[in-house]
Design a protein around this nucleic acid. Structure first.
Lengths: 185, 185
DNA sequence: CCTACCTATGCAACTCGTTGCAATGGGGCC
DNA sequence: GGCCCCATTGCAACGAGTTGCATAGGTAGG
């Protein structure tokens, strides 16, 4: 599995505390991988035990101390090894899709309503991503290396949200059309 | 969580044994939810204990007996309840996306190769879905109710594969362009 | 002043899912 | 005859992720 490796990627970009990482997983990296703070702390502990990261306690004013983690040489090698390893395409899971498949065994109107809510949700996320894109990467053609990668992943997020928006719109339309079919010429 | 409910949906369509369900999860329902046979057997056992399904042992010729499960009234009610319940959008996880974000800490060429393999994979799945679509739903405008739902979910699969294909193509292009930039006028 | 939330770390218990293995008997292939 | 794969069910161990809770000082608002 890969939370370890996601953390190695994030810590390679910039050393960070558990909470910093938690915040990053609510944004950027979080587009395509999520983790709760509890899990991050636990995995960081394990990674320290394995010698992949090492931590330094930093005292702060008016705040609790924080433990700033950085990748060690064995960690860097592990990341390299993992990056070169073949990747299996992870299956997608969508509860909403399962519900839609089973809509005829319950209240279809309620499910269409859930689709509308989901649509709203994806629209919000899309505008956030588009905002980030225009703010951070106004000239994508000039990018190279790591910046290009990060920009492309963000564009992946944009495309994925568009996929959901398009499909959910189709779904809602198809069922609205069905119910009002007889009223049209 | 929802494997229970995915099984209820599938069993509502048609009573089935554990192995039948396993096969279904390798297709149709499996577009947006996956499960191994071990997990299916375990969950079926739990569901029987909860009285959501009931099973009948069917003897077969030259094969082991099979236990055919069907949804009970309490199971039907539970499905209905779950269908009406609000749905949280499940996060997507893509190991490949994480790798791509971290590509500059390893062998980028190897990661582009993984992207190519993934692209192949998604192309194969797309042609399977398109084949199923043209075979089972040649006239989507005439569909209603459950059949419409199932067809729309399949179309969701098609769209999702197209998303991956488009994005992966972009990714590969962007990095090919970068490396060969200086050769162009 | 009290409430409530933020920073920062973490434990414990649980559920969900994966991996590896096993039993049993049939059919097909060489 | 020997080998391997299929159908069918299942257990056991593990790993990944979630939920609930705890501590403990700081700051902001009513």
């Amino acid at each position: 599995m890969a939370l370890e490796h996601a953390l190695l990627v994030s810590l390679s970009e910039q050393a960070a505390s558990g909470l910093d990482l938690t915040h990053r997983f609510d944004k950027s990296i979080g587009y395509f991988w999520t983790a709760s703070h509890q899990q991050i702390y636990r995995v960081l502990g394990r990674m320290e035990g394995d010698g992949w990261v090492h931590c330094e306690v930093v005292a702060q004013q008016g705040r609790p101390d924080k433990k700033v983690y950085a990748v060690t040489e064995p960690g860097r090698l592990e990341l390299e090894r993992w990056l070169a390893e073949p990747t299996v395409t992870d299956p997608i899971r969508s509860e909403l899709m399962v519900k839609i498949r089973g809509a005829s065994y319950g209240d279809r109107a309620a499910i269409i309503e859930q689709a509308r809510e989901s649509l709203e949700d994806h629209r919000k996320r899309l505008s956030l991503y588009e905002f980030l894109e225009s703010k951070d990467y106004p000239n994508p053609d000039l990018l190279e290396g790591r910046e290009l990668d990060i920009c492309l992943v963000l564009r992946g997020g944009v495309r994925l949200e568009r996929f959901w928006i398009d499909w959910l719109t189709d779904y809602i339309d198809a069922h609205t059309r069905t119910t009002t079919k007889e009223r049209r010429p």
